[in-house]
């Protein structure tokens, strides 16, 4: 049997992402990777918590943060997590078209989130002169939230690349694990944001 035959069976298995050894390896390897990412973000959270009151005479979190925009951004990202679940649901049903559509929605929501974040940063910099260099709070805030934003951007590029690359040939056992772990990554980003929303914004506003 050639590779092509193995990867394009007549009947798709129930869990196409874990049907091959390569798929299984990717699946579990990515979970491990997310474990490492958790430590990465935990370290950034720790740094932020240690420096959250170090304003060096500049604006503090209570003064800076408004919850309206951040709340909308949270909703956008939570919804995008849900839409990526739909996409994976359709992957398991071997419905490539619908999967692509829901992934497209996910990407759109992610873009909207990033736009909100850019607007927010811009606002802090120009209205409050609160920058990466102005205080230790600034350094740790932009690093933590910026790392998350960078992850969102990378996730978007990743999903779009997968969608474009496989647009013509549809789903098979070679690319199913790739779609699946991209969606895992997206969920992870979402969970991290929930923590950012709580620890940075809510706790920052309440004091």
């Amino acid at each position: 049997m050639s590779n092509e035959d193995i990867l394009n069976p007549k009947q798709m298995p129930r869990e196409p992402e874990k049907a091959t050894l390569e798929g299984k390896n990717k699946f579990i390897g990515f979970w491990f990777f997310l474990g490492g990412e958790t430590v990465l973000f935990a370290s950034l959270f720790g740094t932020f918590l240690a420096l959250r009151n170090s304003t060096a005479g500049g604006p503090g979190t209570e003064e800076l943060f408004g919850l309206e925009l951040v709340f909308i951004m949270t909703m956008l990202l939570l919804t995008s997590s849900l839409t990526s679940v739909y996409a994976m649901y359709h992957m398991k049903n071997n419905d490539f078209g619908k999967m692509q559509v829901w992934l497209g929605v996910t990407v759109a929501l992610g873009l909207a989130f990033l736009g909100g974040e850019l607007y927010e940063f811009n606002h802090y910099i120009h209205e409050y002169e609160f920058t990466f260099r102005s205080s230790a709070l600034g350094s740790s805030f932009y690093t933590l939230v910026g790392f998350h934003g960078g992850h969102v951007l990378f996730g978007l590029l990743w999903i779009v690349t997968l969608m474009v690359r496989n647009a013509k040939r549809g789903l098979n056992l070679y690319n199913a694990p790739k779609f699946y772990i991209a969606s895992l990554y997206w969920h992870f980003i979402d969970v991290v944001w929930v923590f950012i929303f709580t620890v940075v914004y809510l706790m920052g506003k309440v004091g």
């Binding site: 740094t47 420096l51 170090s54 304003t55 260099r133 205080s135 230790a136 350094s139 740790s140």
Partner: peptide
């Protein structure tokens, strides 16, 4: 130009030791 470890701008050098 960030100031994580610059005490003049509110930084804290012990963070590095912990990390």
């Amino acid at each position: 130009g960030s100031v994580f470890f610059d005490v003049a701008a509110g930084g804290n050098v012990i963070i590095w030791e912990h990390l």
